[in-house]
């Protein structure tokens, strides 16, 4: 049906099997989103593109169809919460740990209907990949969108991926915020969200032994090259623990190819992990790692709701690629420094 529709409407940006990837990794990679765009998408994680200084938000399929037909949609202008970042992240701590920390702090409806604005000098120390991961999970705090102030790194990324001219918007000097949080990135520790809500966060250093059956590294949240790089660094020369299934899913064909060329896939396969072609797969309980009753997974995905990845009595622990990779090696929830 999709192919017929794209043929009929002469849709240029249709990516069939062989070119496809997970939407929110693929669109920035293809340069389809640049700073200053207003983007709607029929997937809740459309908020990802806020990392590039775009206003970007998820909607349902009726809204999408009407948006495509008319070029218009309606919005209530959201109030905003400001996250002022300072300092820089420690080794093996990533954007995922920061956003899990924030959701743990404000709750799954802490930003309901509102915009999460990320700014501050610490922002410059975050990679575009980290920013994409953080903006991706703004919806997990209930936000309408998450948006990052544009800096040199953003402009460099956009220039590298798109021919379109970016438009840079800045917050007004006298902008009003509902709340302001100052986040010192150097204080963020490897963080995990326990079942069954992304707000149930704990730092890895404070938890007891939690044995696991599966590790998933991938998804629109953490399936980018940088995510695979950190996982490969941690898994290099080691073996996946007995009775653990480690599933690695590069988010796009390009990432898949680059991970192959850089030797990451070899590292994963030699460690005893399986590598899949790009797919959302297990994140929403689709395929490639559906959990059985009582099973536990550490996943770099974005939701750990009841039954999300399989059986109603299975459990998902959300974590960074570094924590997921380390956990795959030890067979229990672990941070990278335990295996390095």
């Amino acid at each position: 049906m999709c192919r017929d529709f794209c043929d009929e409407k002469e849709v240029t940006n249709f990516y069939d099997v062989g070119q496809m990837g997970i939407e929110h990794a693929l669109l920035p990679e293809k340069g389809l989103v640049v700073c200053g765009d207003a983007v709607i998408g029929a997937d809740s994680h459309t908020c990802t593109y806020g990392a590039l200084g775009a206003f970007s938000t998820g909607i349902g399929s009726t809204d999408m169809a009407c948006g495509m037909a008319t070029g218009k949609t309606w919005f209530k202008v959201p109030s905003a919460i400001k996250f002022e970042l300072k300092g820089s992240l420690n080794k093996y701590v990533t954007g995922k740990d920061v956003i899990l920390h924030i959701i743990g702090m404000i709750g799954v409806d802490g930003a309901l209907y509102r915009s999460m604005e990320f700014t501050g000098e610490g922002l410059h120390n975050l990679s575009v990949s980290d920013r994409l991961c953080m903006a991706n999970m703004a919806i997990e705090a209930g936000a309408k969108n998450g948006i990052f102030e544009v800096d040199e790194k953003t402009l460099e990324y956009v220039k590298e991926h798109s021919k379109r001219e970016p438009k840079v918007y800045k917050a007004d000097d006298d902008a009003e915020y509902d709340e302001t949080y100052v986040i010192d990135l150097s204080e963020i520790k490897p963080t995990v969200a326990f079942p069954h809500l992304p707000e149930n966060t704990h730092t890895v250093d404070e938890i007891d032994e939690i044995k696991i059956d599966q590790v998933v590294i991938g998804s629109c949240t953490n399936g980018r090259l940088e995510d695979l790089e950190i996982a490969a660094e941690i898994m290099q020369g080691k073996k996946v623990a007995k009775n653990v299934r480690a599933i690695i899913i590069p988010a796009t064909q390009k990432i898949y190819l680059e991970a192959m060329e850089k030797g990451y896939l070899k590292t994963f396969i030699e460690a005893g992990a399986v590598v899949s072609t790009p797919t959302c797969g297990p994140c929403l309980g689709g395929h490639m790692g559906i959990l059985a009753e009582g099973e536990r997974a550490v996943a770099t995905t974005n939701r750990n709701f009841v039954g999300r990845m399989g059986h109603v009595d299975s459990e998902i622990y959300l974590a960074s690629p570094a924590v997921a990779a380390a956990s795959a090696i030890t067979g229990k929830i672990s941070e990278a420094k335990e295996v390095m």
Binding site: I59, G60, D63, D109, L112, Y113
Partner: peptide, 14 residues
């Protein structure tokens, strides 16, 4: 007590 915003819109739309 409150609705997630996409669900809110979808409900109105359908």
């Amino acid at each position: 007590k409150s609705f997630a915003r996409i669900f809110y819109r979808n409900s109105i739309n359908i």
